[in-house]
Design a protein around this nucleic acid. Structure first.
Lengths: 219, 219
DNA sequence: ACACCGGGGATTGTATACAATAGAGTCAAT
DNA sequence: ATTGACTCTATTGTATACAATCCCCGGTGT
């Protein structure tokens, strides 16, 4: 069996989906660009079939739109979308905090603490890419701990959408240190199983992230 | 060109996607049932290709999960999922109300009012199926008016998920009349462009819907 | 100059053919 | 009887072939 995208436990379709999504989110394809199945297939050394399937999924996620018999076009996400996503997260992360605190087991709590310590370590070293990665894992773990399929689905998707933005935001001066403090406060509240406080500090963390993004956008 | 699913402006894939999703939501396929591409394709008189694409989309929505080279299985939505969805909507519809009131144009407002009047008419006639349909349109119009792609995407999907539940709930004694009152209050607040009040009555409406659902579930 | 119409290329939509894999059942060796 | 290897079937994964559609573009008549 020939392969053009490299192995790794995923099917071709899945790998292509992830790659295309990342490329769109990275801005490699801009809004309005057309994605031609055959062209993509050749670039990746596969047939049209898995490419099509990946595109259908992107379509459902709203990252591309397709005009029958004409082509599919990148929709991308706009600045407005990102603002909206932050606003939505401010609502939903409160819920996430509550459910997670109520339902999280001890092991996950330990893991959360551990992630926070790692973030501290890499923040000290100034390796912000790694910090961003841990940051994602941190929040993913909270989402996972809510044990709520619908909530997880939304928040994880959003997390991908704004991943790059958040990383850039993390690199603005002083933000990484502030962010670390906020994460520590979250861990403390979670460890105390204090729903009220957990909700408050997590929502505040999201708000600060958003404010930092808005400040950054002006420059 | 032969067709086995009937025409209607949609591609085969899209029709199959909608049909499968409806069947899962209707409980025609229960959780754990396996969906075999070839079988479905033959049942619908089409080839595997569009069936596959539809299944990939269902997978992304979380309604089925697929084990490579083994099969795809229905995940469905559980009672817990529905409760979660109501909780999430209670958060998000507040946001939706605010944005919709701020951004809705006069024409949509008129349409909203009109939908409400139609609901009154059919509630009087006791045609609750029709009322349920209008109900969906009513809320869809609000979502649309937020002009927010991320918010729309979430709420419209959720609306599909719980569509059947809501319809059943609407048929419990007295609920239709109560629901109508709440919709009228929503329209009034929207017409006055009163964000505070709009947010309050819409969230309250969702909460009542949820409470009614929970009451109904006990019987 | 301009509206109309038709050919042909580009692109997607659908069907089919072939490859790879997982798992169940069988059968022989111990 | 148990275990281990092996074949065989069901199913998905991928590639390719063919059909339908859209639209650009050039020709033609007025």
């Amino acid at each position: 069996m020939k392969r053009g995208v490299g192995q790794g436990g995923y099917s071709l379709r899945e790998k292509i989906f992830l790659k295309l999504r990342q490329d769109i989110l990275d801005g490699k394809y801009k809004a309005g660009d057309s994605l031609v199945e055959l062209k993509l297939a050749e670039e990746m050394g596969v047939s049209r079939t898995p490419v099509r399937e990946a595109i259908r999924q992107l379509e459902l996620e709203g990252l591309v739109y397709s005009i029958p018999n004409k082509g599919v076009f990148v929709e991308g996400i706009t600045g407005q979308d990102i603002e909206d996503i932050y606003a939505i997260r401010e609502c939903m992360e409160g819920l996430a905090a509550r459910w997670a605190i109520e339902r999280m087991d001890e092991q996950s709590l330990k893991e959360l603490e551990n992630l926070c310590e790692l973030m501290e370590f890499y923040t000290g070293k100034g390796d912000l890419d790694r910090v961003g990665e841990l940051n994602s894992k941190f929040h993913d773990l909270i989402f996972e701990s809510t044990k709520s399929k619908p909530l997880k689905q939304i928040l994880i998707d959003f997390q991908y959408y704004i991943g790059n933005i958040r990383l850039a935001s993390l690199k603005s001066p002083g933000r990484a240190e502030q962010s670390l403090k906020e994460h520590k406060a979250i861990v403390e509240a979670f460890k105390d199983r204090d729903v009220e406080r957990g909700e408050r500090v997590l929502v505040e963390h999201i708000r600060n992230t958003r404010l930092n993004y808005e400040k950054m956008r002006k420059d």
